[in-house]
Each structure stands twice: as structure tokens, then as C-alpha cells.
Computed example of a mutant assay.
Amino acid sequence: MTWDIRAYRGPDDATATFDVFQAAVRQTASSVYGPDQVDAWAGPARTDLSDWDSRRREASTLVAEVDDTVAGFTDLLPDGLVDMLFVHPRSGGRGVARALLTATMRDARARGLTELRTLASRSAQPTFERLGFTVVAHRPDNTIRGLVVPNVEMRRLL
């Protein structure tokens, strides 16, 4: 499988990246979280994606495309937080997350950052570990929309 990594293209990418997020949370993360936790994390289905689009444009968002279809995306905030990393389940296990994180690390180094941090879900933790992130703290009480959805704080020196 080959993919292209490119910058987020504003409103044109909002629906596709939101769909990737929903599929990744509802399908991939459901292997490690219960139905109520998944529903809390995924949140309500949205028809107005203006806030979603604004968040992607404010971050340094990279998008992975496979055959002209958005397969995944990642957000890097100015302080070095990898805020989002999601891959559509149909593209999982094929190196898309690795390609996105590798490009994000290259971008972070170019910005002069010396470390990246993330709050990784249980399903994403192994991916981050394979790319050199280490667990800083377990967050068993992480709460989303009133439900506990445990995750881990991780970091990687650049």
C-alpha cells in the first residue's frame, strides 16, 4: 500500500477526517473500551463541522491519503502535543500511522521542538511505543463526557 502525506486542506477535509475519527474510535478502540466509553469518546454525530475544521486548521494537521481517499490524520499543537492520531480501520496495520507520526516528528524538529507528548488511548499506545514514545504516566481516571476512559501520557525526545 502506498500513501501520500499532505497538509490539511481546510473545510474540504473536515468531513473525511471526522469520518476517520469516528470509524477509528467506534471500530478500532472498541476492542479495548466498552460501548459506553466508545460512545462518550466519539461524541454525537455532527452535521456542522465548523468547530472540527477550525481545530484542524489551528493545529499542524497532516492527512494520509490512499488512492485519493483520506486514510488517517494527525494534529501537532505548537507546544509539541500530538493531539490526534487516527487511522481508518480499513487502512490499519499498513504503516499509515507510522508514516503520519514520522512526518509529524520531522515537522516538529523543523520547528525546533525537542520533544513530543501525547495522551494515547489503550488502542494507540502500542503504535506510539513502536516509534519511541515512552509512558510517563497512566491516567486511569481520564474522563470524557462524564465517563472514565483510561489513557496514558507519553513522550518522545527528538
Rank of each mutant, 00 (worst) to 15 (best):
Arg55Thr: 14
Gln125Ile: 04
Ser50Val: 15
Leu62Trp: 02
Pro44Arg: 13
Tyr33Ser: 04
Tyr33Glu: 03
Met105Gly: 11
Pro11Tyr: 12
Asp19Gly: 15
Ala120Glu: 13
Leu113His: 06
Leu131Pro: 04
Thr102Phe: 10
Gly92Val: 05
Ile144Gly: 01
Pro11Trp: 02
Trp52Thr: 00
Arg111Phe: 10
Leu131Ile: 08
Thr134Lys: 06
Trp41Asn: 03
Val32Trp: 03
His138Gly: 08
Thr47Trp: 12
Thr69Arg: 05
Thr114Ala: 13
Ala14Tyr: 08
Phe73Leu: 06
Arg122Asp: 10
Val136Thr: 14
Val20Tyr: 11
Thr2His: 06
Val66Glu: 06
Met105Asp: 11
Pro126Tyr: 14
Ala45Pro: 11
Thr114Gly: 15
Leu131Arg: 13
Leu157Glu: 14
Pro78Ser: 14
Asp53Ala: 15
Val87Arg: 00
Leu119Glu: 13
Asp68Glu: 12
Arg46Ile: 13
Thr134Pro: 00
Ala137Pro: 01
Arg57Asp: 10
Asp67Glu: 13
Phe21Cys: 10
Gly10Val: 08
Gly34Ser: 02
Asp83His: 09
Leu116Asn: 09
Glu115Tyr: 03
Thr114Lys: 09
Leu62Cys: 11
Phe128Cys: 12
Ala71Asp: 06
Gln27Cys: 06
Glu115Cys: 11
Asp13Gly: 09
Ala64Trp: 00
Val82Gly: 02
Ala24Gln: 10
Leu76Asn: 04
Pro150Gln: 07
Met84Asp: 11
Gly10Asp: 09
Ala59Arg: 00
Pro44Met: 10
Asp141Leu: 03
Thr114Pro: 00
Asp75Asn: 07
Leu85Gln: 11
Arg6Thr: 04
Ala59Glu: 10
Val32Asp: 09
Met84Pro: 02
Arg139Pro: 02
Asp51Val: 15
Arg55Asp: 13
Leu116Gly: 05
Ala64Ser: 05
Thr102Cys: 12
Trp41Tyr: 03
Arg109Asp: 11
Leu116Asp: 10
Gly93Met: 07
Val96Cys: 00
Gly43Asp: 10
Thr69Trp: 08
Met84Arg: 05
Thr61Lys: 01
Arg117Glu: 15
Arg111Ala: 15
